[in-house]
Simulated scan of single mutants.
Amino acid sequence: MALATLAAACGTVQDNPGGGGGAPGNSQSAEIPAAAKDDKLAALLPAEIKADGKILIGQDQSYPPNEFVENDKVVGMDVDLGKAIGQKLGVTVEYQNTAFDGIIAGLASGRYEAAMSSLTINADRLKEVDMVSYFSAGTSGAVLKGNPDKLTLDTLCGKNIAVQKGTVQVEDLEARTAKCKQAGQPDINVQQFQNQTDANLALSSKRVQGMLADSPVVDYALKMTNGQLEQFGQVYDSAPYGLALPKGKGEYAKAVQGAIQALIEDGTYKKILEKWGVQQGAVTKSEVNPAPAG
């Protein structure tokens, strides 16, 4: 099955000037012009980053099309955007693969200098790290083609639903399970997977009846399975993704926000999103620690 090939790899992958790899249905071989360095923004970086000239970014590389491994190379929307942010700030970026549910803790402990891994901005995360917004995504559901179990977002009680550990979708399913209990219905059987690619495969191999994930991830899974899957329900709870940074680092967040805003304004951002077919999540303004919705 197509999704079985989208497996994550381990280790540290350095930003590659050649861009991303190819995949069916996308212009992923498209070259993204290098972003021009902004000396004023670069001057805002912490001293230790200026000294070694790089930013180590933690991410879970099992979340196509945002970050994933293809042909032994990490590619994706976040990867290309992170590279462009580095160019704007005059530094290189390196990506270190890790479990999604450990990314924020790793950043807070100093293991990484940034985290860029489809992290939805929410109140809990803002307590631990600074977050700079750069994209908007909601939650979407996927089922097998034809929706054999006739699932809707209101009929998940008693069903087997796949989700990646540590994501906002886990909290969503916990809240829905509480409503099932209140209504005297069976709990949702939430099956949590360490990697999103494993959640995708659980659905395509009929081990679960449905899956919840971020909207661009579900859209990509539908494209890559050649008609095996389809979306059910509408996208909901749209919220910004944030590039996470450790607190107490001076004007680091301001530097990253300025770089993202500059990429939006010079058209680089648009080219990257179009390359990965995720332009529906584009934002026009990047912010530091925006107030979470609701």
Rank of each mutant, 00 (worst) to 15 (best):
D237G: 12
Q192G: 07
A221F: 05
S62H: 02
Q96H: 12
L153C: 09
Q164N: 01
G18E: 15
Y63M: 14
L41V: 01
G90C: 10
V168K: 10
N147Y: 08
G233C: 02
G227C: 05
V129G: 02
R207C: 02
T120R: 15
V69T: 14
T5M: 12
K249C: 02
A35W: 06
P17C: 08
D187G: 00
D130Y: 07
L173V: 02
L173R: 05
K270T: 14
D101Y: 13
K127D: 11
I32Q: 10
A105H: 02
P24L: 13
G227H: 10
I121W: 11
G267Y: 02
L212A: 09
E274L: 04
A42Y: 02
V74P: 00
L3Q: 11
L203N: 02
A51F: 00
S109G: 08
V170R: 02
P290L: 06
G11Y: 00
K249F: 01
Q87D: 11
Y252V: 00
P148A: 01
Q228P: 00
A244Y: 04
V75K: 13
L45I: 01
Q192F: 00
P24S: 13
K145N: 12
I188W: 05
E113V: 06
K73A: 12
G21W: 06
A115H: 07
A175M: 10
A262R: 11
Q192H: 08
L89R: 12
Q182R: 10
Q279R: 09
S286I: 02
K271Y: 08
A137F: 10
V163D: 08
T268E: 03
K54M: 11
D52I: 02
K254P: 06
Q234G: 09
G267R: 01
D219H: 04
R176G: 04
L173S: 08
S204L: 03
A175I: 11
T225E: 14
R111F: 07
Q194W: 08
K83R: 15
G86K: 09
A142K: 06
D198R: 09
Q234M: 07
D198V: 09
D198Y: 07
N122Q: 10
V91Y: 08
A202G: 07
T152R: 01
I272K: 08
I104W: 09
N200D: 14
D72N: 15
T92N: 12
I260P: 05
K165V: 11
I161S: 05
D78Y: 04
P65E: 09
V190A: 07
L156I: 00
G90Y: 04
S117H: 03
Y236K: 15
E265Q: 15
A34R: 12
K247W: 05
A9S: 14
K223R: 13
A115I: 01
K249V: 06
V74R: 04
V288Q: 01
A42P: 00
A8H: 08
A137K: 05
K254T: 15
Y63R: 15
K271A: 14
L126Q: 13
L81F: 11
Q59G: 14
G242I: 08
N97M: 06
F68C: 03
E174S: 08
A259T: 06
K275T: 01
L144A: 13
V74I: 14
G210C: 07
G20D: 15
G18D: 14
L3H: 12
K83M: 13
I188V: 03
T155Y: 03
A255E: 04
L3R: 12
A47E: 15
P216K: 05
K150C: 04
Q234K: 14
E274G: 12
K223M: 12
Y63E: 14
G250W: 08
L229R: 01
Y95T: 02
Q28K: 05
